[in-house]
Amino acid sequence: MNSQHDCENCPVHHRENLIRLGIAMDRVDYVVALAGNPNTGKSTVFNNLTGLRQHTGNWPGKTVTRAEGGYSYAEKRYKVVDLPGTYSLLSTSTDEETARDFILFGRPDVTVIVADATRLERNLNLVLQVLEITDRAVLCLNLMDEAKRNHIEIDERNLSAELGIPVIPAAARQKEGMPELIAAIEEVASGRYVCQPHRLKSRSPKLNHAVSTLAQKLAAQFPGLPNLNWVALRLLEGDQSIIEAVRTGELGKLSTGVLSPQP
């Protein structure tokens, strides 16, 4: 096996594999959700992936509804959903609920979390919350150019090891890191990269017991509902919107995939 051959095997090499599909999204193989804090460049990443030109703006809260687009890479078709920016999955405004419901119940094949490299610590709060509820995620460490200007260095390998997911440094405005991101999405979606997402350890056995008791009940009542543990935890915390969803049975609809755009 010569080195030429290796190079050609590397997915990053095949830039021409990328076909931007814009809004033509029939027959989708994978659904990719774009999540992240406000103003981290999700829409710019979205535009780079899909070739669409969603309006982007340098202010938090620009995207309030979800935008959808598609691309095709290595003979698979991907649908990308650009979600509103959110600081956490615990809050209650309509735009943040849109993001939360989709990650929780839309069952994306891969969740790409776009993070601001210059404010990593705060961005990690959302990253950790997302990793609580999904097994397949990629961290896109955006705004690396700004981080560089501010003399911030990030040890991506170590970060990837800590989080248990691929970490891709990028500067989406300059279109840097996009081929690598596309390749990482493909690896996670196809299962060639198996994520071992970071999970919070500091939970008491008492809490774990309560969560699993409640999760069992929920499973019996709403068969097929994903992320039972998370829903159980939110119920325990008294999240009004989740309580309401249980009371009215709305939650059951989520499990049948009303929110899921998957074919």
Binding site: E121, L124, E162
Partner: peptide, 15 residues
């Protein structure tokens, strides 16, 4: 615990 983990990871990886 989320905040604690976030700041621990950030301390380890950001310089």
């Amino acid at each position: 615990s989320i905040y604690a983990d976030a700041s621990r990871i950030a301390r380890k990886t950001v310089r």
